[in-house]
Amino acid sequence: MPSDDTDIDRKALWVVRELGLPAIVKGCVSCRCTRHHPTGKFRVNANGKLLDVWLLICCEQCGGTSKIPVHERIHVRALDHDRLVRFENNDPALARRLVMDAALARRASYRLDWHGTWQLETDMPFYELDREDAPLEVFTRFELPAPVRVEQLLTAGFRLSRAAVKGLVGAGRIRLPMAVDARVREDFSFQVRSASRAKWRGSDR
């Protein structure tokens, strides 16, 4: 988003830190529990020239193992050799990425529970928001693609109530590249404008 405040010299970095991988919510084949955790392992099964590849997950309650289909009946030549080797070697980076893959979750009919997987770290103390003469640009970086509501980030980062955050957005103090109630999972930046600048812009509406 282009800046109306050309003299922004205060910048802050907010980081959505990873605390853990999301839980996989699907029915267990052995008990009534619906929460699973990744094992970090794959199973590859060959039937002639066709391959099946599954991501293995573990039930939180009974410890039973379930399979999430990653590739089904794919021709061996259609699967990149390096990717196949990574499956066979239980590559941790590939397993981590697939655990958080929203498209795979939709395709395999389960959902991801991101509760408790992240926390926000900020290098900007709350009191700086009260400095009316100093606009600020905040860069928000995600260590994992957790879908977090923008409003939740702002209330945590500024230590304000939801009503106060919405009031600042409505008054033009906080300028966002998306709606305040949107969910984000990728890096973005936003601006906090001085009170006098926000009032001046508001008079033009």
Rank of each mutant, 00 (worst) to 15 (best):
V15Q: 06
E60Q: 15
E128K: 05
A171F: 05
G64H: 14
P38R: 14
R162K: 10
N45P: 02
R162W: 04
L55I: 00
T155D: 08
C33I: 06
R97F: 00
W14M: 08
W14C: 05
L129F: 12
H71T: 03
L19N: 12
S161K: 03
G116Q: 09
V180C: 03
V184R: 03
D181L: 11
M178N: 07
R183K: 13
I57W: 09
L129K: 08
E132W: 04
S3G: 05
A105E: 11
R86H: 03
L144N: 02
R197P: 01
V150C: 07
R73Y: 02
S189T: 10
P125G: 02
A164K: 14
V180M: 04
K67Y: 12
L21A: 01
D113Y: 05
R197S: 12
L136W: 04
D204G: 02
F188G: 11
G63A: 10
T155K: 09
M100Y: 09
P135R: 02
K199R: 15
Q61S: 15
H115M: 10
P22C: 03
G27V: 01
E18F: 01
Q119D: 11
D80M: 10
R141I: 11
K49P: 00
G27S: 15
A182E: 07
T122Y: 04
A102D: 13
F188P: 07
G27L: 09
A146L: 01
S3D: 05
L55D: 05
K166T: 00
G170S: 04
E128P: 02
R173E: 10
F87G: 09
F158G: 13
C59T: 10
F42Q: 06
V138A: 14
K67P: 00
E143A: 04
E72C: 05
A134G: 01
T6F: 12
A179S: 13
R205D: 15
V70W: 09
R197A: 11
F188T: 11
A102C: 00
S196D: 12
A163L: 14
A182Y: 02
D181M: 10
R162V: 09
F142L: 04
D82Y: 07
A163H: 12
L144G: 07
L160V: 09
A12N: 03
H71R: 14
